[in-house]
């Protein structure tokens, strides 16, 4: 049997057996990535909106930095967060190194720029349509930002999905900060990396297929939600 067929077989077997280790790994992957997406949304959505609406010379440089930060190398982020969280680091007292909390922090740092940059672009586009009207109503910047975040909700859902996708597929940073400890900080991507280096390709591929399926399911659910929302108000 080819490696691919074997891995597919293994993947189906893992799911059918509802392997407890697999369940734990998958749940942690989803939980950590969802938490990181939530944290990044809390920072990135308002940040992106404010940069989009800020009439200042600094707005363009900040937008460029945000766009560039979308490509932050995960291992570098992992290393920096590792240094922050290590015992002698400024956040050492938190005791988050090699814990899921530390992984969430690293993922949040990674995807906040993605969400903020996509939000900035989206809000800018929506603002162009409504700017003159908002000007004539004499809206304050805060009211503008909050209104536009609601107006752009459908497009912003895509920004959140992009952030989630990046977080759940991330391996370098969570490996460094989490340590890939079985039963504690082992997630799908780090398991795939580990199994590959151990030579258990079918298991690694099976996990990869599951990860892809999960990302697909999350997107299908989100798209369904979007269409349901858009049905009413275009």
């Amino acid at each position: 049997m080819s490696v691919l067929a074997e891995s597919l077989d293994a993947a189906i077997g893992l799911v059918v057996r509802a392997d407890p280790a697999l369940r734990e790994i998958t749940l942690l992957s989803l939980k950590a990535s969802a938490t990181a997406t939530l944290c990044a949304a809390l920072i990135g959505l308002p940040l992106g909106a404010l940069v989009a609406l800020w009439r200042s010379r600094l707005a363009t440089p900040i937008a460029i930095v945000l766009n560039a930060a979308m490509g932050l190398p995960p291992v570098v982020v992992g290393l920096l967060v590792y240094l922050l969280l290590s015992r002698s680091g400024p956040l050492g007292a938190l005791g988050w190194l090699f814990t899921p909390s530390g992984m969430v922090l690293a993922q949040t740092v990674l995807i906040t720029p993605i969400i903020a940059a996509l939000t900035r672009q989206t809000i800018e586009d929506h603002h162009r349509e409504l700017r003159e009207w908002f000007d004539s109503l004499g809206l304050t910047p805060w009211r503008r930002a909050s209104t536009l975040l609601v107006e752009a909700r459908h497009s912003l859902a895509v920004a959140l999905l992009a952030g989630f996708g990046r977080a759940v597929a991330e391996v370098g940073a969570v490996m460094i900060v989490g340590g890939n400890i079985a039963g504690s900080t082992r997630v799908m991507t780090t398991t795939i990396a580990l199994e590959t280096s151990k030579g258990d390709l079918p298991l690694a591929l099976a996990l990869g297929a599951l990860l892809l399926a999960l990302v697909l399911i999350v997107n299908v659910i989100a798209q369904g939600g979007r269409m349901w929302l858009a049905r009413d108000h275009g």
């Binding site: 003159e132 004499g138 107006e151 009413d232």
Partner: peptide
Amino acid sequence: RAQLMLLQRPPQMRRSALDQLRFVLAT
């Protein structure tokens, strides 16, 4: 607050007509 302007292209929010009106009144 004491004046209002009708633009050439009427504003279109991604909301219902009632909600758009409520938004204006909220401002």
